[in-house]
Design a protein around this nucleic acid. Structure first.
Lengths: 194, 194
DNA sequence: GTCTATAAATGGATAGAC
DNA sequence: GTCTATCCATTTATAGAC
């Protein structure tokens, strides 16, 4: 309802994140941002002088979001599967929607053209996420709730790749692919009894 | 050794495919092609007037490659797992290498900015590939070699997403991720006895 | 913080000579 | 089939007024 938004910088970041997830970092321009926000390109440059600056700021946004979401999922009172579900449905699916993919997947796809400054941040976030999922899986196996062989980290890789790949496929083929992938994944983890 | 290559058109397509896998369709230019091939942009336009034409031709190249590879894998005398392995190591891994991802993954990532004419081709190829893997999985389950629950198509989704996601991750994090993902995947399919 | 104006580079594309 | 030359639009980025 406010004509003058309290924080223009945040507004730019919000839109940039959306465009990152729908089009990719190299495929949206300051033009896109300025026209959709109703301000000029020069104004965007005032907040983020170079596109690499915007990219680094975007990485911080994603990192903060991950930390909040991981803490939220960890603190749930339910089972390990409930927490994994909170990650998949709450974090990934909610933040992505039908036309968006995971921001980290988007950055990975553009890796060859990405500003140098963004790469360490990307690696760090990927690792952070993988560790979080591995922790939940380990927990679930320890209390007899989940079943899988080998290192929790290996199973975490399988889990994360499936979720993110499912989002990418769904954007092209519809959400049934996402549902099929997640259901199959859960069935396997719960011991193949279904 | 020939100074005048027999088929310039094919040479352009070969390079374009590589750039598609390393940088993405929107991230390589006629400039890139021309400088690396030692001819001018105008010459590339002679063979492919618009970039969408090049894109459609690229889809045909990928489709042909899939058909050859799928036939090759089907005709192997080994087990279902051997055929899946031929797909993973022979088709995907060989064609992608350390710095390349699956061309279909690359196109999926760029879907929002892709020329209209390429989209139906992408959907068709994704389906074709999924059907092929589902067929191998079904075969393996029927002869008692592989174990999984539910529809073969659902398990095929899991399988394909894992392989392609692993390639994408490996480009950023190194090939250990690829190996870990594939090993874990196979262990699950072989009945979790390892 | 936002604007106008503009620079400098790049990308896709075409015309016409050889 | 390849070249030179050129066009037009877009993109990143900067200078300076308000």
């Amino acid at each position: 309802m406010q004509t003058r938004p309290k924080n223009r910088k945040q507004q730019i970041l919000d839109l940039a994140l959306e465009l990152l997830q729908t089009h990719g970092f190299e495929s949206f321009s300051y033009q896109d941002l300025s026209s959709k926000l109703g301000i000029t390109k020069a104004s965007i440059h005032h907040h983020f002088p170079k596109k690499a600056d915007l990219g680094v700021a975007l990485c911080e946004v994603i990192q903060d979001w991950h930390e909040r979401e991981f803490t939220r999922a960890r603190n749930l009172s339910g089972s390990a599967m409930d927490k994994l579900d909170a990650y998949v449905k709450g974090t990934l699916r909610y933040a992505c929607g039908d036309k968006k993919i995971c921001p980290l997947s988007s950055l990975q796809a553009d890796i060859a053209s990405l500003p140098e400054a963004m790469r360490p941040a990307l690696k760090r976030m990927d690792d952070h996420e993988l560790n979080f999922i591995a922790e939940l899986l380990e927990q679930g196996r320890d209390n007899g709730e989940l079943q899988f062989v080998g290192a929790a980290r290996s199973q975490a890789i399988l889990f994360v790749l499936t979720c993110k790949g499912a989002l990418q496929y769904s954007r092209v083929h519809g959400s049934e692919v996402f549902d099929a992938a997640i259901t199959q994944m859960k069935t396997v983890l719960l011991g193949e009894s279904a």
